[in-house]
C-alpha cells in the first residue's frame, strides 16, 4: 500500500493527490481525497451515471476510471460547470422544470446534458433520451428532465437569436 503522489487537474486547478492507494477510482479520489462530493456514488460499478464527470471533453463514469490514469487531463466535475457561485443554464432549467427530486442523480445528469448540448445544440427527444440513458433517475421518470433539456435548448436559441 505504497503512497504515491500525483496531480489531477480538476476544474482548471492542479490538485495534489497524496496518500492515495493504488487502484483508487477517480470518483473515490474526487470525493474522499479532494473533497469534491458533488459527484455521486449510487453504484460504483459503471451502471448509474451518478458519478459522471467530463475528462478531456468526454463524459465518463468516474467510478470506472483509475484516478492515476487521468493525470494531465482536464477534469470537469459538477463543481466546475458554473462560474462565480452562479448556475449554468442547464442547472437552472433542472430547478425551474422540476427535474430535481431527491437530487442524487442530478449532478451526473447535469454533466451528461451539458456535454450533449455542447456537441449537439438542438437534439431531438430521442437523441436526448439516448444521451442520458446511462444516467439512472429513480424519482422523476425522466419527464421533467426531458423538459429541462428542451428549456435549455430554447433558452440558448433565444440568446443566439438576440445576439
Amino acid at each position: 500500500m505504497s503512497a504515491d503522489t500525483y496531480s489531477l487537474k480538476v476544474n482548471g486547478t492542479d490538485r495534489q493527490v497524496t496518500e492515495s492507494l493504488p487502484g483508487e477510482s477517480l470518483l473515490r479520489v474526487l470525493r474522499e481525497r479532494l473533497g469534491f462530493h458533488g459527484s455521486k456514488n449510487a453504484c460504483e460499478e459503471g451502471e448509474c451515471g451518478s458519478c459522471t464527470v467530463v475528462v478531456n471533453g468526454q463524459t465518463v463514469c468516474s467510478c470506472l476510471v483509475l484516478a492515476e490514469s487521468v493525470t494531465g487531463y482536464e477534469i470537469t466535475t459538477i463543481e466546475g460547470v458554473a462560474d462565480d457561485d452562479g448556475l449554468s443554464d442547464v442547472q437552472q432549467a433542472f430547478i425551474d422544470t422540476g427535474a430535481v427530486q431527491c437530487g442524487f442523480c442530478t449532478p451526473g445528469l447535469v454533466m451528461s446534458v451539458g456535454a450533449l448540448l455542447d456537441s449537439v445544440p438542438d437534439p431531438d427527444e430521442l437523441a436526448v433520451r439516448e444521451a442520458i440513458s446511462g444516467n439512472l433517475c429513480r424519482c422523476t421518470g425522466y419527464g421533467r428532465i426531458i423538459e429541462a433539456v428542451s428549456q435549455t435548448v430554447d433558452g440558448r436559441r433565444d440568446d443566439g437569436s438576440r445576439s
Binding site: 462530493h37 442547472q91 433542472f94 422540476g98 430535481v100
Partner: peptide, 17 residues
C-alpha cells in the same frame, strides 16, 4: 421551486453518503 433545488443542482447538497 424546491428550496433545496440549487444545492442539489450544484452538487453542494449534503447527502448521507
Amino acid at each position: 421551486r424546491r428550496p433545496d433545488g440549487v444545492p442539489k443542482a450544484t452538487g453542494s447538497f449534503s447527502f448521507s453518503s
